[in-house]
């Protein structure tokens, strides 16, 4: 992992590392990314922390192509490396997330207790097309109100099947309970 660091560039010279420069209109955004990068500079795993914080402050909780470019510029890291890290961890979102996030556990225990049905139920309530098993599922409604995704395991296997809605974990979830939970979130408006 040494090369990016070996360029030894300050933020101002970062063009020589990434080969890109943000548009003048984005200078302000760049300043805020630079401020985040400055807080983590020199710490091990700085890139992970910067990605995490940039995702957190984004209104749609994701890392846009533009944000990743700005992170590259601010940190002097090659863009391919940033993309590599951002696509490796499921924590990072590369597409806009809804106001409410429903995470369905697809671990073995949850699967045997019907999590696939719950996932399909959630998707169908929110009007998504069919779920394809071979893809890393993440679906966001057009109005950006809901996102449905899966996780490999929550570590709550004894309480399977498990679904998390806006960070709250619901155990022994059923189809009808899921439906009313989604409806409750919808009524609650923006969280």
């Amino acid at each position: 992992m040494g090369t990016a660091k070996s360029t030894g560039l300050s933020a101002g010279q970062s063009l020589s590392a990434t080969g890109t420069r943000c548009a003048p209109a984005e200078e302000e955004l760049l300043r805020s990314v630079e401020a985040i990068a400055a807080r983590h500079r020199g710490k091990p795993g700085a890139l992970l922390a910067v990605l995490e914080e940039c995702q957190r402050v984004d209104p749609h909780h994701y890392l846009s192509e533009n944000t990743l470019c700005l992170i590259g510029q601010a940190m002097g890291e090659p863009l391919s490396r940033i993309y590599s890290v951002a696509t490796f961890y499921s924590y990072y979102n590369l597409s806009p997330q809804g106001d409410h996030v429903i995470v369905v556990c697809r671990g073995t225990a949850c699967h045997t207790r019907g999590s696939l049905g719950l996932l399909q139920e959630a998707l169908s309530i929110l009007g998504a097309s069919e779920y394809r098993e071979d893809e890393e599922a993440s679906f966001t409604t057009d109005d950006k109100r809901f996102t449905v995704r899966t996780v490999a395991c929550f570590g709550q296997c004894a309480l399977a099947p498990v679904v998390a809605i806006d960070g709250v974990i619901y155990s022994r979830m059923t189809s009808s309970a899921l439906k009313s939970a989604i409806e409750a979130s919808a009524r609650g408006g923006k969280k």
Binding site: T3, S80, I82, Y83, T87, F88, Y89
Partner: peptide, 21 residues
């Protein structure tokens, strides 16, 4: 020192990719 490509994705979806595929 160009770093045009890197590993992207994870597990069975691992592949070599330029930025944003």
């Amino acid at each position: 020192g160009v770093s045009a490509i890197d590993f992207a994705g994870r597990g069975v979806r691992s592949h070599i990719a330029p930025f944003m595929d």
